[in-house]
Design a protein around this nucleic acid. Sequence first.
DNA 1: AGATTAACTGAACGATTGTTCAAATAAAAC
DNA 2: GTTTTATTTGAACAATCGTTCAGTTAATCT
Lengths: 195, 195
Amino acid sequence: MARKTGSHSEITGPKVRDAALRLFARHGYAAVSMRQIAREVGVQAGALYLYTKDKQSLLFDLMRTHMDELLAAWAATPKGSTPLAQLEDFSRFHIHFHLDRPDAVFIAYMELRNLSDANFATLEALRREYERELERILEAGHAAGMINVPDTRLATMAVIAMLTGVNTWYREGGRLSQDAVADIYWDMVRGAVGA
Amino acid sequence: MARKTGSHSEITGPKVRDAALRLFARHGYAAVSMRQIAREVGVQAGALYLYTKDKQSLLFDLMRTHMDELLAAWAATPKGSTPLAQLEDFSRFHIHFHLDRPDAVFIAYMELRNLSDANFATLEALRREYERELERILEAGHAAGMINVPDTRLATMAVIAMLTGVNTWYREGGRLSQDAVADIYWDMVRGAVGA
DNA sequence: AGATTAACTGAACGATTGTTCAAATAAAAC
DNA sequence: GTTTTATTTGAACAATCGTTCAGTTAATCT
C-alpha cells in the first residue's frame, strides 16, 4: 500500500494539525510522539513530514496561528467609544474567544518552554501585543478618571489572568452559559479596576 | 568507583528533589530524563532509584509536598476576625507563599496531566481543599453583607487566578517589592468582590 | 582491625524516540 | 490509455528512554 484512496493534502494537512493540537493539549508536547499523531490521523509517521518540517515547527505553527487569530479577532471586534465600554468589550471578547478554543489556549500557555529561542521570542512579542491592547484601554480609562488603579501594568496582568482562568474550570453544558459567565466576570473586572 | 567520599542519603536525597524540581519546572516533566537529573546531582542515573521508586513518584512527591506545605502554611497563618480581614490575609498569604517557590508552583499547575489517575485524584483533592478555604471566606463575607458577588464559586476561581497570575510576571529585584505587589493586588481583589 | 552496612557505579535491558528515504500506488494531466 | 505528479508506506537509522542489578567502595559499628 502507498497512496490512500481519496487522499488529499487539503484533507490530511488539517487533520495533522487537529490531531497534534488535541494530543499536545491533552498530554503535553514532549509526551506526544510523532507516531501517536500519525495513528490519530490514520497514516504512518513518515507521512507527517510532508506537512511539517519537524515536530518543533508543528508546535510553533499551532501557537503562532492561535496568536494571529487572537489578534485578528480582537481587531475585528466592534468596540465602544468610552474606555469603560472598551474594557467590557475586551473582557467579553477574551472569555468567549478563549472558551471556544480550550486546546489552543492550553498549548499557548503551557508549551512556551518547549519552543526554540527564536520561536519563543516571536510568540512572546505577539503575547505582549495583545496585553498592550488591554493596557492601552486601562491607561485611557485612568486618564479619563473612569477607572482607578494604582498601576496600569499590574492591572493589565491581573485582569488577563482572571479572565484566562475561566478556561481552567468552565465546562460546556455546565450550570452557566458563556454569556452568564461573561456577565459575572465583567462585574468583577469592573470592580477590580475601581470603576 | 562506587560510594563517594562524604556521601550521605540526607545530603543526596534533598539534592535529587531540588534538581528534579528545578529541571521539571524549567523543561517540563516529560522533557527531563533521569540521566539529566543524575548529572545535576553529580551521580549516575541508577543511584536515583535509592531515593525514588520511579520517575512518576518523584514528580508526585514534589507536588504533594508542595500542596501539604501550602495548606499547613495557611493553617498556621494568623487571621483577622472579619471576613474582609480574612480575605486580605488570604490574598497577601497567597502572593507571598507562591512568589517564594515559583518552581514548585509552576510544576503544581503544569504537570497535573503527567500524573497517574490515582495521583491526580489525590492532588486535585488537596487543591480543592485550598480553594474551599477562600470560598468559605467569601461565603461568610457575603452572608455578612460585607462583599457583593453574584456567585461565590466564580469569585473564588477569579481571585485565585488573579493572585496566582503574579507568578507569571514577577521577578525578584524588579521595580516592585512583594509587599508593594500584595498591596496593589489586595486593592484589586477587594474591588472585584465588591467590598 | 575486621565485619557490616549504606551509597554508588557502570553496564546492560528492551522499548521508543524523531527523522530519512527508496519504493509503491492513486490521482491528475495529457 | 499513458505519463506525470502527489501522496503514502514500511523499513531503517542512531540516539535516548526508564529501570534493574551485580559488583565496588566509603562510612559505620563491634
